[in-house]
Structure formats: C-alpha cells, structure tokens
Design a protein around this nucleic acid. Sequence first.
DNA 1: AGTCATATTGTTATCGATATCAGTTTCCAA
DNA 2: TTGGAAACTGATATCGATAACAATATGACT
Lengths: 352, 352
Amino acid sequence: MADKLADKAKGKGAHDVSAGKPTMADVADYAGVSTMTVSRALKKDGRVSEDTRKRILQAVDKLGYVLDQAAGSLSSRRTGFVAALVPSINNSNFSDTARGITDALENSGLQLLLGYTDYSTEKEEKLIQSMLQRRPEGIILTGGSHTPQARRMLEKSGIPVVETWEIPEDPIDHVVGFSNSEVMADLVRALAGRGYRKFGYIGGTTARDTRGSLRRAGFLKAVDELGLGPGRVISFGVPPISIEQGAQAVVSMLERWPDTEVVLCVSDLSAFGALMECQRRGMKVPGDIAIAGFGDYEISAFCHPRITTVNVDCYGIGKLAAGRLLQAINGGGVAGDELTLTSYKVILRESA
Amino acid sequence: MADKLADKAKGKGAHDVSAGKPTMADVADYAGVSTMTVSRALKKDGRVSEDTRKRILQAVDKLGYVLDQAAGSLSSRRTGFVAALVPSINNSNFSDTARGITDALENSGLQLLLGYTDYSTEKEEKLIQSMLQRRPEGIILTGGSHTPQARRMLEKSGIPVVETWEIPEDPIDHVVGFSNSEVMADLVRALAGRGYRKFGYIGGTTARDTRGSLRRAGFLKAVDELGLGPGRVISFGVPPISIEQGAQAVVSMLERWPDTEVVLCVSDLSAFGALMECQRRGMKVPGDIAIAGFGDYEISAFCHPRITTVNVDCYGIGKLAAGRLLQAINGGGVAGDELTLTSYKVILRESA
DNA sequence: AGTCATATTGTTATCGATATCAGTTTCCAA
DNA sequence: TTGGAAACTGATATCGATAACAATATGACT
C-alpha cells in the first residue's frame, strides 16, 4: 500500500523515469504494452509485431533500460551461465583452452564463469561450491582428480560436467581429452626413432599436477619398453611450471648424468628454460644435448633452435568441451560417445 | 491457494525432499526454523545462535542444499559480480592483470566476469552491454578508448568504472595505469645513455591497439628530443602481437635501414621473435644489433641473451584496479585520488 | 456467413531468496 | 524483583523478470 501511495504521488501509472534504474514495467508503460510483450520483444525469438517491437525498442533506448538477467534467471530457471575451472590462466596452454571455450560459447547466449584452481583440488572444491551457487547450466573441469566432496556436489547438481585434458579412470560425466602418458610415450618413441638412447626427464614431483605425473609415467613406461634402461628423472617443485625451473633442472641433470643424450620436459616452458641454460653454458643443442618439450607453446616454434614438442590442441580441447556441453544442455540426450579423444601430434623440430 | 492445495497434498509443511532441488524453505522446515534464519545462518555475519546454526548446517548437508544466488541477488539487489574486460587472455601481460584482479577479489565474496575484447572497441561495447545485464557492482576496463555508446552505457549504469593500462585523456571514472608513451620514451633515453644512436621501432599500425600506438608515439618523441633524427619505424598488422611478426619485422628493418643500432619493440613477444630471427641469420645480439622489448614477459628474463625491456607491473595493475573498485563499491566515496599511477622499471639486460 | 488456425498481446502466479520490522527470550543491573 | 537492552527468530512484502495460459483480433477457407 505504500506502493499505492507512491504511485499516487507520482501520478497513477506514471513510473518515475528520473529516479533509479528503470524496470521492464517502466518500459512497458512508456510503450503502452504489458511487460510480457516487452520481455518478448527483447528476445530474438519473441513473437511481437514489427510495429510494437519498434515502439518498445524506442522506449528502451529512451529510458536507457537494461535487462536484469538476475530476475530473468529466477523466473525462467535458466541462468545462462557456464562454469569452467582451469589450473591457471597464466599458462598459455590453459588460456588457449579458455579461449576455445569462449569461442564455442560465443553465440549461445551463455556467459562463462572462469575460475583458477592453482592446481589444487581443495581450491577446486571451493570454486565448485561457489560456482554452483550461481546455478550454471554446465561445468567444464580440467583433469580427473577431484575431492570426494567435489564429486558429490557435481553429481547432485544434476548439470552436465565435462572433464578435460585427461582421461579419468572414473569419469563423472563427459570427457574431452587425451592420454598424457600415451602422448608422452609417443614422443619418447619418436625420439628413440631418431637414434637417441639415453633419456632424461624433467618434471614436477607432486601429485598436485596429475597431468605432469601422467606424463612422467608415460616417459618411464616407454623408455622401459624400448629396453633403454631406467629413465633418468629430475624433479622440481610444485606447479605452475616455470622457465626457471627447467633451467635449474637441466643443470642437475647434467651433473648427475653427464652423458644424457636427450631431455624430455613436462612442458615447453621448462624445455625452453633448459635450452637457454644450455646455450648460456656454451653447449650445443642438439649437438651436445637434445631437448624436447610438451604442449607446443608459441615460443617453441620460433626460438633458436626450434623445440621439438607435442601439440595437444589446447584450443580444440576447449572448443570441443564447450560444444559437448552445449549439446548436453540443449539437446538433452547426447548423440554418440561420452568420451571425446582429442588429437595430438608429435612435432619434430631442431632441438631433438 | 493453489499453494495450499499443494501443501495439503504433500502433507502440510512437509516439503517434498526427494524431488527437485531443495530450496531454503525445505532446509528451514527440516531444521524447524524460518527461511530467514536459514538465510542468516548461511552468511558469516548472520546473528544466529550456535545451536540453531549447527542444526541448520546439518539440514543443509542432509538435503544437499545449495544457495541460489540468483534469487538472493534479486532480493538483496547485490549481485556480487564484478566485470573485467581485457583485450586478450592469451597474452601473459593481460592474464597477469586478470590474475591480479582475481587475487584482489579473493575474499571479497565477489565473482569475476571476465571478457575478451580482441582489441576491438565494437566487441568491447557488446561485451559491456551483455555484462551490464548481469548487474555487476563494478567494472574494470583495459584502455581509454571506447565507443560513444559504451561510454553512455557505463555512465548510465551508475557503477564504478576503472580504466587500466593507460591514462585516458577523458577518464570515465577511476584510472589505474601508466603513460605508455612516457614509459617507452624512458626506455629510449636509457638506451641512448648506453650509447646507441640509430633507433628503430617495431610495432603495429592500427589505432586498434591504442597502447601500441602510444608507445610508438613515445618512441618517436624521445628520439626526436634527443636529436637522433627521425626514428625508423616498421609496422606490421593488427594485434594480437605475435612472435612471428617480430621476426618478420626485424628483417624488413634490416633491409631498409641496415645500419640500425638498436630496435625497440612494442612488446617482448615481438622482441623475442626479432632476437631469434637475428640469431638464425647468424647475427650477434647485441653485437651486430641490439634489441629491446616492452612488458617484461617471463621469456625475456631467461632467453639468451636476456632481453632488455620495461616492467610495467601487470599483476599490480590488476590488483590495484580491483582494490580501487572494492573501495568504490563498499566504501562509497573513495579516499584520495581518482588516478593511480602504477610503477614501472626499465630493465637493462644483455640484449641492448 | 461461419469456423478455425494464426498472430499478437495480456493476466496471473510464481521463481527463491532477503530487507525490514516486529515479536520473543535472555540476562543483567538497579 | 523488574525494567530494558541485547540477542535471536519470525512474518510479510517485495526484488524484476518469465512461464503458462487466456483472450482477442485477423484472415483464410469452406
């Protein structure tokens, strides 16, 4: 009733244009239609006559009206959000994936909620919880390791989930990724094919970076299968992997096993660090020692010598994952497989 | 009244737990309190007795309840969103800024909505429009160039705006940045101090990357002021700036002005490309030609030779911008200046 | 002319939380 | 004891949009 008084004060039905943000009701008043018609006019699919639509758009422009999606979400029960969690955005592999997701979402009307886990499942759990409060219509994760609580929340949420960048043993829902161990093993085989025999590996230690651990496992397995003795492994600290760590690790490698012929790195960044450190010490790459990376970062294609690596189509992972999510959200049932294997390619360049 | 019937059908007050997502009312029922008490219990500041809080949290856990922030936003009129637009996330300078923003927002309870403009003011305008529909409580932009429509929308929105990475002539609201031209000029002076006299510059052409244009302007101005004749400029295409462009541009530079002593680049990425290309051609850097970059990317500190550059504290820009935004959102009036100049530092290394 | 499909617009009832104000209880000082 | 502040808790009325269904107009077709 306070409302009625207010209305009276301003003149019945004449919503006050000057004060506060205009609402859809203001626009409706101004255009002489109901809010429902305004609502319809503002969506592309709305069935409204050209004439009234024009009138409404004029009113919108005149009043400077901006649709309030929070209100819309509540009543339509569709928030138009999609959540994606990546370990770090300060890593061009993952930012490429984020870009792929963004591009795939471009014309879907969905808004991306991006979060960084810092390679920590605990932080991932917290993020999942806070993301779910926004009622996203789907969620994209990196990797297959999650806390039990995180899994529970995701399962209960009832929204489609896409895990990326790995092939989890026990997937939650959809998967778009590749086998890190197998890809690394392929790289080992390719290099063995080039004649290298004494293999070294540089990578992180912790279980925190599961993809890194898988790559190391793939390295060890392949070296072993080729009968090239136990692989030589130098570990450094926790992710994020930096160039500097690669530089330090290659020094340790050379101290411990001076006759190492080729060093594979968990990431192009560490490979680059290793390469530069070798050059700084006057070593020839690949003459004195060969170096290979993982991830096909831009630098690897342009540094000197160019770095042998594996391209794992980071952008494509994001694009496919988001596409799969859209299918699951819109199409309801998904056609075909729940598992999408993404392509990868060993890229032999000059460094190994 | 339909409500009452429904209630009756299920048994008065006994919200159906098994079906659909539980709401706050379900939790309230289960815990034997009102929704208001549940609401209070779920915020840290809520004044609820320890006893009932525990009971409520148990109910939440039991029912697997997840707060719906869309509904909360509507009634509290606070969405808890902050929007940030960066030109590209696939550029470590801007992803560092994004990281700074994220970190500053960490414990504020605010959720970041991140968008990529691809260096286009048109796309920025579209993004601003769609972001505003989410009713963010503040917005962070990169750069000072915006479409008139974008400015209008921002001004009408009534939320605090922070422009970053530049000092706009006509700021919308708050600014956290530095003078791209002045910083580049400083770099020129520092290199002139090292004895270089014939200056070249590699950078983009378009007005699209205003920061790039400002840097070039600063270069030309400084070279001129030092009486070192007109600077030699090689332009390449539109952003994003790639390593490859730097490699190509340095070739053009050497063809056109073979006696160039030092080449400054709009970004470390192009500097790196130029450096590698020179090495590939057997040129000594800095012996035959010196190279400098801008932005202090990680590679510059580790490549061989290390690249002389300018650090512009990308992370700090993000952190300060978000801090400033928080002040404006919470504190209401902002203490002190609307303009925050961020620090920068010329870093002389081996390449120039 | 009458019937029915189509196009357009309106009415009503929520969506799920929180602000606000109003009770109720507790506890302590006088 | 008792008044009254402080601590809790609850009832009610929104917040601003949209779904679902209803109503009306328009026109085509038999």
